[in-house]
């Protein structure tokens, strides 16, 4: 009861009905929350229930996912026809002026010394039998010339196995391919972070012992992407044994992984 009320109407400040209304409103809100939660909880499919993989993983044993082929362009599309309307012909090219010859302007001190003898024609270098496949080519260009190497196409890049010992590489080219094959089989492209920038490259060095075991695995040049470095390292670490060396005490292998977005 309010002490300042002047009339019975005013004395009744409807506290009771107010509090009842508030309680009812709160109860409704709480009921709505619980109802919503229960509805969501029971209605939504539980974990892995109606998914195509029921309580399991899907494992595929293939090396490459057969991606769908690109759809051919729609022929009779009225709105965006393939035939581009003819653009205006470009202005005719100006007649090219012949560049000035060296002899036109005489620059003092720049005249070639007359005494120089033309270099003797060198013999063409002997053709080394290169291991196949040469394609696809890695973009680490500096070693793509002479050293025996074997390039393998990975799902997200290339792996180039190079051997410094040229005599060994030519004599036992098949061994290099075996190494490259084993490495690519044990390389999991999923391990590389998809955010890795295009063209990152990591270079590994390791020694193969006479019995085929790996020693001294280390990173020669980091790529800057730790996941690419780790994936490359693991591809070697997963291999228990390479084939035993056909000759020699040990063999140093340089393996470069170049990352390209799949």
């Amino acid at each position: 009861m309010s002490a300042y009320a002047t009339s019975p109407d005013e004395q009744n400040d409807r506290f009771g009905s107010g509090i009842a209304g508030a309680i009812l409103l709160h109860a409704l809100v709480v009921a709505a929350i619980i109802g919503w939660a229960a509805f969501n909880h029971f209605h939504n499919p539980t974990w892995g229930e109606s998914a195509p993989q029921v309580g399991s993983i899907q494992a595929s044993m293939v090396s490459a996912i057969p991606l769908p082929t690109k759809a051919p362009p729609v022929k009779d599309n009225v709105l965006t026809p393939d035939e581009v309307s003819k653009a205006a012909a470009p202005p005719p090219k100006e007649a090219a002026v012949a560049p000035p010859k060296d002899t036109d302007v005489l620059i003092k001190g720049k005249t070639p010394p007359v005494t120089k003898v033309a270099p003797a024609p060198t013999e063409a270098p002997p053709k080394h039998p290169q291991p196949v496949p040469v394609t696809p080519k890695a973009n680490t260009g500096e070693q793509a010339t002479q050293l025996p190497h074997s390039v393998t196409q990975l799902k997200n890049g290339t792996s180039t196995v190079t051997v410094q010992d040229r005599a060994f590489g030519n004599r036992y080219a098949y061994y290099l391919q075996l190494v490259a094959r084993a490495v690519s089989q044990n390389y999991y492209p999923q391990e590389v972070d998809a955010q890795t920038s295009e063209g990152k490259s990591v270079k590994l060095l390791f020694d193969i012992q006479r019995d085929g075991t790996v020693l001294n695995l280390r990173i020669e040049t980091r790529s800057g992407s730790s996941s690419l470095d780790t994936a490359a390292l693991r591809s070697i670490q997963r291999i228990d044994n390479f084939a035993p060396l056909p000759a020699g005490d040990h063999l140093t292998i340089e393996d470069t992984f170049d990352y390209h977005k799949p």
Binding site: I57, Q58, A59, S60, M61, V62, S63, A64, R181, S184, Q185, Y188, Q190
Partner: peptide
């Protein structure tokens, strides 16, 4: 989601 024991005919 992949276990690989062999990479198929390509290798």
């Amino acid at each position: 989601g992949q276990i690989t024991t062999d990479k198929g005919a390509g290798s």
